[in-house]
């Protein structure tokens, strides 16, 4: 296993601004097994000789704070989640029984869970698509203008600083059926708009809020990606007579693929996990269960309905999804980065 993970070990790893599960870590995730340790560090030194300090105790003290927090707040609870996911407990924690995979079986066959899985998928695809499409359009335009580029960027990055929950509230204020000005406008135009009663309207509202918040992030990445494309290629195509639209779809867009793939994963993760605030503040999962995403359901089952075993099983399923997304990023996204 160390051998297989070795070649990529010196590659750049890239942290994400959120503690999101996905990052360009640059290594296969399976290489994390402890037994890889000795051979691993030995080889690393052989490859990249590094001058180090000889202290024996100091390094342990330096990593201690992070490891302590990691152990107490990450590994211990994650282990608990795994254990609890196989327990059947009453809400007061008085009785518990080890039931192996019963919780998983029940959760996965529960129509409500399947529904929230569908809701999450629809929500994620819609959010990723809308926010990326708008951001790409704006980034392409920003790439064309010379004057005022800085001002446009400054004005475009605001939403990044707005908490998802507040973003949700702002849009809800605009589209609230009783006092929202835009809702008033929609009704005036003849739309029967009520996100508090209609599931589709509610979904449109949360997707709008979630996409709006993510536009700035995607915009910055698309701008950076566009700047990395060699201008000579585009000029050559222009000399050959390719029009602007054709140049975009045959040269710019394919060369932008690494950025697009990367953002696709980041946005999916964002929609899966970081939008809890929007759902909780705007719709509370409703109306009915029309906007109940997976994370919201874990919260709801665990904290509101107190079905501990089911909630833990859902947590474990979420963990598997996160690991899957991370693996996907490593295998497909990382390899496609070929510019620069």
């Amino acid at each position: 296993m160390p051998q297989s993970s070795r070649p990529s070990a010196t590659k750049k790893s890239a942290p994400h601004p959120y503690p999101l599960p996905v990052t360009n870590g640059g290594r296969g995730i399976n290489a994390g097994a402890p037994q890889a340790d000795e051979g691993h560090s030995g080889k690393e030194e052989a490859l990249s000789p590094r001058v180090t300090f000889p202290n024996k105790v100091l390094p342990y003290l330096l990593v201690a704070p992070q490891l302590a927090i990691t152990a107490v707040f990450f590994y211990w609870p994650a282990g608990q989640a795994l254990y609890q996911s196989m327990l059947r407990e009453d809400p007061f924690g008085l009785n518990s029984k080890f039931v192996w995979f019963d919780n998983f079986a029940r959760v996965l066959s529960d129509p409500n869970y399947v529904n929230s899985l569908k809701v999450t998928v629809v929500f994620s695809i819609a959010t990723a698509f809308v926010s990326m499409a708008v951001a790409l359009l704006l980034a392409v335009m920003a790439d064309k203008v010379i004057r005022g580029r800085g001002i446009y960027r400054t004005l475009m990055i605001w939403p990044y600083a707005v908490a998802p929950a507040i973003a949700g509230m702002l849009w809800l204020f605009l589209f609230n059926p009783s006092i929202g000005t835009l809702a008033y406008g929609l009704r005036w135009l003849g739309f029967d708009w009520n996100p508090l009663l209609d599931g589709t309207d509610a979904m449109v509202l949360v997707v709008t809020a979630a996409s709006w918040k993510q536009i700035s992030y995607n915009f910055l990445f698309f701008v950076a990606g566009l700047q990395a494309i060699p201008k000579t290629l585009i000029e050559a195509a222009a000399i050959d007579g390719a029009g602007e639209t054709k140049r975009f779809w045959t040269i710019v867009f394919p060369l932008l693929a690494p950025t697009t793939f990367f953002l696709l994963v980041v946005n999916t993760v964002y929609a899966f996990f970081d939008t809890f605030g929007i759902i909780h503040a705007v719709t509370g999962g409703g109306p009915g269960k029309a906007t109940e995403t997976l994370v919201y359901k874990v919260y709801n089952d665990g904290f509101v309905n107190l079905i501990l075993g089911d909630s833990a099983a859902q947590s474990v399923i979420l963990m598997v999804i996160v690991i899957g997304l991370t693996a996907f990023q490593f295998r497909f996204v990382e390899k496609k980065v070929h510019y620069g």
């Binding site: 503690p19 999101l20 599960p21 996905v22 990052t23 870590g25 290594r27 995730i29 290489a31 994390g32 402890p34 890889a36 340790d37 691993h40 560090s41 690393e44 030194e45 590094r50 180090t52 300090f53 202290n55 024996k56 100091l58 390094p59 342990y60 330096l62 990593v63 992070q66 490891l67 990691t70 707040f73 990450f74 590994y75 211990w76 609870p77 994650a78 282990g79 608990q80 989640a81 609890q84 996990f273 809890f276 994370v295 874990v298 919260y299 665990g302 904290f303 501990l308 909630s311 833990a312 947590s315 474990v316 979420l318 963990m319 996160v322 690991i323 991370t326």
Partner: peptide, 29 residues
């Protein structure tokens, strides 16, 4: 900047926390 036993183990232990955001372990945490 140091070489010590379990160095890479520690690194991986830290690295893997990327896959455990608060959202997936809310109740036990």
């Amino acid at each position: 900047f140091f070489r010590f036993p379990f160095r890479m183990t520690f690194f991986w232990l830290i690295f893997i926390t990327l896959m455990l955001p608060v959202e997936v372990r809310i109740l036990p945490t």
